[in-house]
Amino acid sequence: MPASRELGRDLSDTALIVERGRRVLALEAEALRASEAALGEAFADAVRLLATCTGRVIVAGVGKSGLVGRKMAATFTSTGTPAMFLHPVESVHGDLGIVGPDDVAILISKSGESDELLGLIEALARMGVKRIAMTAVATSRLARLSDVTLDLLVKEEACPHDLAPTTSTTVTMALGDALAVAVLQAKGFQAHDFARLHPGGALGRRLLTRVSDVMVTAPLPILDPMATMREAVVLLAERRGIAIVVEQERVSGVVTAGDLTRLLERQHDVLSVPVATVMTTSPRTAEDHELGSAVVHRMETFGIMAMPVVDAAKRLVGVVHLHDLMRAGAV
């Protein structure tokens, strides 16, 4: 049968296409489960080397292993462990100058017999650099020349010809993530550290935006405790649906547009009603130093559109609006 007719038959068979996709996912999931079960002392040794490294983490690999290595180096760097990718071929033509004896190297090769990588690891050994091998062949030369060997445990690639790197690259990337996360936890890397290294984009805004960056500070919608709803209605209209009753700089109550609506449902003449009989006497507040994302979560949980902001002494310092927080990217 001509190849074009065979292709047409395959592409018209939805069940066949889906089954092929499921086979790939099943093989890779099985390999990940095997790697999880086999994780042991060697992994702990690798984490200790990386967490106590006073230089940089050098990641190297050829081909698809190199592509995974680039991602691995980026993950380490973004989580507080300086790392860089070193191409094995370029390394023996001058790029070894970036490597120092305090560095730790991660060398990736499924077979463990890559000539380019073996040339690099021998040079690293002469420099006194600690070496972590990631390979599927524990008896390979790469493994023998390394201080720690992490077994990739890949029985077969998901490629039907067992050729294209698929299962092996998935396991390698997952193992790299496991190393990076274990190292960041060992080093006490926190969310604020992550924010410091990711100031740009949506992630940076969510981790860096604080209530004080977004809150309204003047004029504040403040009411006297003896005020009536006539005064409150004016503030609700002018100050985006919130009025705050303040005594001695402390928040004693809050009136919202929702409170006004519920009052109107009960009686017609509301303007002379004392604010003290309508206000919420134990309102939820935000603190000026809080992360905006935490306050957004609280406001969404309790259906609050605007919230008083207080300082460490519980004095009113501003008002924060859910819309402003969301517009600032604190979600």
Rank of each mutant, 00 (worst) to 15 (best):
E238P: 00
G40T: 11
M326H: 06
A37W: 02
S140Y: 01
L152V: 06
V255Y: 01
A178D: 10
A257C: 06
L271T: 14
L145T: 03
A31P: 10
M307R: 05
G61I: 00
V310M: 15
A294H: 08
E300K: 12
G258D: 14
R250S: 13
V214E: 13
A195D: 15
D193N: 14
L208P: 12
M84P: 00
L235Y: 05
A164Y: 12
T14L: 12
P225G: 08
G253I: 04
P199W: 06
E249F: 02
E113F: 06
S78V: 09
L271R: 12
D193L: 11
M326Q: 11
E30H: 12
L175Q: 12
I132M: 07
G94P: 04
S65G: 14
H289I: 11
H161T: 12
R33Q: 15
M1L: 12
D115I: 01
G253V: 05
D162F: 14
R131H: 03
E36T: 14
P160A: 10
G200A: 15
V148M: 10
S272I: 05
L16M: 07
R298V: 13
E19F: 01
R206H: 10
E290H: 13
P2M: 08
T81A: 07
V295G: 13
R23P: 01
A15I: 00
R298T: 12
R23M: 10
K187D: 07
T281R: 15
D147C: 05
A46C: 03
T79R: 08
P165C: 09
E247R: 13
L207I: 09
E287G: 14
I132S: 04
G94M: 05
Q248N: 14
A257R: 03
I244M: 10
G318Y: 12
I132G: 03
T277M: 10
L107D: 01
L86Y: 03
E36Q: 15
L11M: 14
T75Q: 09
T77M: 08
I222A: 06
A133Q: 04
D151M: 09
A182M: 04
R315M: 05
G97P: 03
R206S: 12
A26P: 00
D224I: 00
H198T: 09
V171T: 12
I58K: 01
D288V: 12
L325K: 04
P274W: 06
R9G: 04
V310Q: 14
A125K: 12
V68R: 07
A73L: 07
L50Q: 02
T209D: 15
D193G: 07
S272A: 14
R196N: 09
A180S: 10
V296M: 11
A257F: 02
R23A: 08
L50H: 03
S114R: 01
A60R: 01
E156N: 09
L118Y: 06
R56I: 00
S212A: 15
I304T: 08
L107N: 01
D162C: 11
V183I: 00
V270P: 02
D288T: 13
G188D: 14
A123V: 03
V92W: 01
M299Y: 02
R240M: 06
G21H: 14
P308M: 04
R70T: 08
M307Q: 03
T167F: 00
V24R: 05
H87R: 00
S111T: 09
L107K: 01
F43Q: 06
V275W: 02
R33K: 15
P308L: 02
M307N: 03
R230D: 15
T169N: 05
G21C: 13
R126W: 07
D162M: 11
D115M: 02
G100A: 02
G94S: 07
P199C: 13
V309T: 11
